[in-house]
Protein backbone atom coordinates (compact mmCIF):
# COMPACT_ATOMS: atom_id res chain seq x y z
CA UNK A 1 0.00 0.00 0.00
CA UNK A 2 1.26 3.44 -0.85
CA UNK A 3 0.08 6.64 0.77
CA UNK A 4 1.35 8.52 -2.26
CA UNK A 5 -1.20 6.91 -4.57
CA UNK A 6 -4.15 7.55 -2.30
CA UNK A 7 -4.48 11.22 -3.20
CA UNK A 8 -4.07 10.53 -6.89
CA UNK A 9 -6.69 7.86 -7.12
CA UNK A 10 -7.95 8.94 -10.52
CA UNK A 11 -10.52 6.97 -12.45
CA UNK A 12 -8.38 4.58 -14.37
CA UNK A 13 -7.33 1.14 -13.38
CA UNK A 14 -4.22 1.18 -15.49
CA UNK A 15 -1.95 3.64 -13.77
CA UNK A 16 -2.55 3.11 -10.07
CA UNK A 17 0.01 0.70 -8.65
CA UNK A 18 -2.17 0.12 -5.58
CA UNK A 19 -4.85 -1.53 -7.72
CA UNK A 20 -4.49 -5.22 -8.53
CA UNK A 21 -5.16 -6.23 -12.14
CA UNK A 22 -8.78 -5.94 -13.25
CA UNK A 23 -9.84 -3.82 -10.27
CA UNK A 24 -11.34 -0.33 -10.19
CA UNK A 25 -11.25 2.18 -7.37
CA UNK A 26 -14.33 2.94 -5.30
CA UNK A 27 -14.82 5.50 -2.58
CA UNK A 28 -18.00 3.74 -1.40
CA UNK A 29 -18.14 0.58 0.65
CA UNK A 30 -20.44 -1.73 -1.33
CA UNK A 31 -22.41 -4.25 0.70
CA UNK A 32 -22.05 -7.79 -0.58
CA UNK A 33 -23.85 -10.68 1.01
CA UNK A 34 -25.20 -14.07 0.02
CA UNK A 35 -28.04 -13.85 2.51
CA UNK A 36 -29.85 -11.72 5.05
CA UNK A 37 -27.87 -9.84 7.69
CA UNK A 38 -27.97 -11.91 10.87
CA UNK A 39 -28.81 -10.17 14.11
CA UNK A 40 -25.79 -10.98 16.26
CA UNK A 41 -25.96 -9.74 19.84
CA UNK A 42 -22.67 -9.17 21.64
CA UNK A 43 -24.31 -10.50 24.83
CA UNK A 44 -24.45 -13.95 23.28
CA UNK A 45 -21.62 -13.57 20.75
CA UNK A 46 -18.99 -16.26 20.86
CA UNK A 47 -15.88 -17.00 18.84
CA UNK A 48 -14.30 -20.43 18.80
CA UNK A 49 -11.22 -22.12 17.39
CA UNK A 50 -11.62 -25.89 17.07
CA UNK A 51 -8.63 -28.16 16.50
CA UNK A 52 -8.20 -31.73 15.31
CA UNK A 53 -8.29 -33.09 18.86
CA UNK A 54 -11.78 -31.67 19.34
CA UNK A 55 -10.49 -29.05 21.72
CA UNK A 56 -12.52 -25.84 21.48
CA UNK A 57 -10.97 -22.50 22.44
CA UNK A 58 -13.71 -19.96 23.27
CA UNK A 59 -13.97 -16.22 23.69
CA UNK A 60 -17.04 -14.19 24.52
CA UNK A 61 -17.33 -10.53 23.56
CA UNK A 62 -16.00 -9.26 26.87
CA UNK A 63 -12.98 -11.54 26.61
CA UNK A 64 -12.32 -10.44 23.03
CA UNK A 65 -12.44 -6.78 24.05
CA UNK A 66 -9.93 -7.46 26.84
CA UNK A 67 -7.31 -8.68 24.36
CA UNK A 68 -4.68 -6.37 22.87
CA UNK A 69 -6.06 -4.46 19.90
CA UNK A 70 -4.30 -3.28 16.78
CA UNK A 71 -5.07 -0.54 14.27
CA UNK A 72 -4.91 -1.83 10.73
CA UNK A 73 -4.47 0.42 7.71
CA UNK A 74 -5.01 -1.51 4.54
CA UNK A 75 -6.44 -1.69 1.05
CA UNK A 76 -9.26 -4.16 0.38
CA UNK A 77 -10.06 -5.88 -2.90
CA UNK A 78 -13.40 -7.48 -3.76
CA UNK A 79 -13.62 -10.16 -6.43
CA UNK A 80 -16.51 -8.20 -7.97
CA UNK A 81 -13.73 -5.84 -9.09
CA UNK A 82 -13.94 -2.92 -6.68
CA UNK A 83 -11.01 -1.97 -4.48
CA UNK A 84 -11.07 0.45 -1.59
CA UNK A 85 -7.76 2.00 -0.60
CA UNK A 86 -6.53 3.20 2.76
CA UNK A 87 -9.21 1.75 5.02
CA UNK A 88 -8.74 1.80 8.79
CA UNK A 89 -9.83 -1.00 11.09
CA UNK A 90 -9.34 -1.97 14.70
CA UNK A 91 -9.34 -5.50 15.95
CA UNK A 92 -7.53 -8.41 17.51
CA UNK A 93 -4.77 -10.18 15.64
CA UNK A 94 -5.38 -13.86 15.00
CA UNK A 95 -1.82 -14.35 16.25
CA UNK A 96 -3.14 -13.41 19.68
CA UNK A 97 -6.07 -15.80 19.41
CA UNK A 98 -3.95 -18.67 18.09
CA UNK A 99 -1.23 -18.16 20.73
CA UNK A 100 -2.36 -21.10 22.87
CA UNK A 101 -3.78 -23.24 20.06
CA UNK A 102 -1.91 -26.42 19.28
CA UNK A 103 -2.53 -27.87 15.83
CA UNK A 104 -0.71 -29.81 13.16
CA UNK A 105 -3.25 -28.94 10.49
CA UNK A 106 -2.42 -26.49 7.70
CA UNK A 107 -5.86 -25.22 6.67
CA UNK A 108 -8.74 -23.37 8.25
CA UNK A 109 -12.47 -23.13 7.59
CA UNK A 110 -14.02 -19.82 8.63
CA UNK A 111 -17.61 -20.10 9.89
CA UNK A 112 -20.04 -17.22 10.16
CA UNK A 113 -23.29 -16.55 11.93
CA UNK A 114 -25.83 -17.11 9.16
CA UNK A 115 -24.05 -20.18 7.80
CA UNK A 116 -21.44 -18.71 5.43
CA UNK A 117 -18.10 -20.47 5.15
CA UNK A 118 -14.79 -19.75 3.44
CA UNK A 119 -11.45 -21.55 3.56
CA UNK A 120 -7.86 -20.32 3.87
CA UNK A 121 -4.42 -21.74 4.56
CA UNK A 122 -3.43 -21.44 8.21
CA UNK A 123 -0.25 -19.57 7.30
CA UNK A 124 -2.35 -16.85 5.64
CA UNK A 125 -4.06 -16.15 8.94
CA UNK A 126 -0.80 -15.84 10.90
CA UNK A 127 2.15 -13.47 11.25
CA UNK A 128 0.22 -10.22 11.21
CA UNK A 129 -1.89 -11.00 8.16
CA UNK A 130 -5.37 -11.49 9.70
CA UNK A 131 -7.55 -10.02 12.42
CA UNK A 132 -10.98 -10.15 13.98
CA UNK A 133 -12.10 -6.60 13.23
CA UNK A 134 -14.79 -4.89 15.27
CA UNK A 135 -14.21 -1.23 14.38
CA UNK A 136 -14.19 0.44 10.96
CA UNK A 137 -13.07 4.06 10.49
CA UNK A 138 -13.41 4.66 14.23
CA UNK A 139 -16.97 3.37 14.51
CA UNK A 140 -18.34 0.01 15.62
CA UNK A 141 -18.52 -2.22 12.56
CA UNK A 142 -21.96 -1.90 10.96
CA UNK A 143 -23.96 -5.16 10.82
CA UNK A 144 -24.27 -4.97 7.05
CA UNK A 145 -20.47 -4.97 6.85
CA UNK A 146 -20.16 -7.89 9.23
CA UNK A 147 -20.61 -6.36 12.67
CA UNK A 148 -20.22 -6.92 15.48
CA UNK A 149 -17.06 -8.63 14.22
CA UNK A 150 -15.71 -9.97 10.97
CA UNK A 151 -12.52 -11.56 9.84
CA UNK A 152 -10.10 -9.24 8.04
CA UNK A 153 -7.68 -10.97 5.67
CA UNK A 154 -6.90 -8.09 3.34
CA UNK A 155 -4.18 -9.72 1.24
CA UNK A 156 -6.81 -12.06 -0.24
CA UNK A 157 -10.01 -11.17 -2.11
CA UNK A 158 -12.53 -9.89 0.40
CA UNK A 159 -14.88 -12.89 0.26
CA UNK A 160 -12.16 -14.56 2.37
CA UNK A 161 -12.79 -12.01 5.13
CA UNK A 162 -15.89 -13.67 6.56
CA UNK A 163 -18.53 -11.33 7.95
CA UNK A 164 -20.22 -12.14 11.29
CA UNK A 165 -17.35 -14.44 12.19
CA UNK A 166 -18.28 -17.16 14.60
CA UNK A 167 -15.42 -19.61 14.56
CA UNK A 168 -12.46 -21.23 12.88
CA UNK A 169 -12.05 -24.96 12.40
CA UNK A 170 -8.65 -26.45 11.63
CA UNK A 171 -8.61 -28.78 8.59
CA UNK A 172 -6.13 -31.34 7.30
CA UNK A 173 -7.03 -30.54 3.68
CA UNK A 174 -7.94 -27.31 1.93
CA UNK A 175 -11.67 -28.05 1.73
CA UNK A 176 -13.61 -25.42 -0.22
CA UNK A 177 -16.01 -23.01 1.48
CA UNK A 178 -19.29 -21.61 0.17
CA UNK A 179 -18.17 -19.67 -2.91
CA UNK A 180 -15.14 -21.88 -3.44
CA UNK A 181 -17.50 -24.83 -3.97
CA UNK A 182 -19.30 -22.81 -6.59
CA UNK A 183 -16.55 -21.76 -8.91
CA UNK A 184 -14.48 -19.23 -7.00
CA UNK A 185 -10.78 -19.74 -6.52
CA UNK A 186 -9.57 -21.91 -3.65
CA UNK A 187 -6.96 -19.28 -2.63
CA UNK A 188 -8.00 -15.92 -4.10
CA UNK A 189 -4.87 -13.76 -4.48
CA UNK A 190 -5.98 -10.45 -6.04
CA UNK A 191 -2.49 -9.73 -7.40
CA UNK A 192 -2.55 -13.03 -9.29
CA UNK A 193 -6.18 -12.33 -10.24
CA UNK A 194 -7.24 -15.69 -8.84
CA UNK A 195 -10.99 -15.16 -9.22
CA UNK A 196 -12.24 -18.48 -10.56
CA UNK A 197 -11.07 -22.01 -11.01
Amino acid sequence: MSIFTRGFSGRGRDNNPALPPGQYLTEDFPVLSAGPTPNVDTDTWEFTITTETGKVHRWNWEQLMALPTEDIHTDIHCVTRWSKLGTTWRGVSLDTLFADVETEYDYVMEHSYGGYTTNAPYEDLRDGKAWIAHTFEGEPLDPEHGGPARLLVPHLYFWKSAKWIRGLTMMAEDDPGFWEQNGYHIYGDPWQEQRYW
Binding site: L32, S33, G35
Partner: peptide, 29 residues
Protein backbone atom coordinates in the same frame (compact mmCIF):
# COMPACT_ATOMS: atom_id res chain seq x y z
CA UNK B 1 -29.27 -12.21 -3.21
CA UNK B 2 -27.49 -10.73 -6.19
CA UNK B 3 -25.08 -8.44 -4.32
CA UNK B 4 -22.50 -11.14 -3.82
CA UNK B 5 -19.68 -12.75 -5.80
CA UNK B 6 -22.39 -14.84 -7.44
CA UNK B 7 -26.15 -15.01 -7.12
CA UNK B 8 -27.42 -16.85 -4.08
CA UNK B 9 -31.02 -18.08 -4.38
CA UNK B 10 -32.78 -18.90 -1.10
CA UNK B 11 -36.01 -20.66 -0.17
CA UNK B 12 -38.73 -18.14 0.63
CA UNK B 13 -39.96 -20.34 3.49
CA UNK B 14 -36.85 -21.42 5.42
CA UNK B 15 -34.19 -19.14 3.92
CA UNK B 16 -31.78 -21.97 3.17
CA UNK B 17 -29.77 -21.95 -0.06
CA UNK B 18 -31.55 -23.51 -3.05
CA UNK B 19 -29.00 -22.77 -5.71
CA UNK B 20 -26.17 -20.46 -6.68
CA UNK B 21 -25.03 -18.96 -9.96
CA UNK B 22 -21.49 -17.95 -10.67
CA UNK B 23 -20.38 -16.39 -13.92
CA UNK B 24 -16.80 -17.57 -13.83
CA UNK B 25 -15.09 -15.85 -16.72
CA UNK B 26 -16.62 -17.35 -19.86
CA UNK B 27 -18.50 -20.09 -17.95
CA UNK B 28 -21.88 -19.95 -16.23
CA UNK B 29 -21.95 -22.33 -13.30
Amino acid sequence: YDAAPGWCVRCHVCGDVLLTFVRAGDRLR
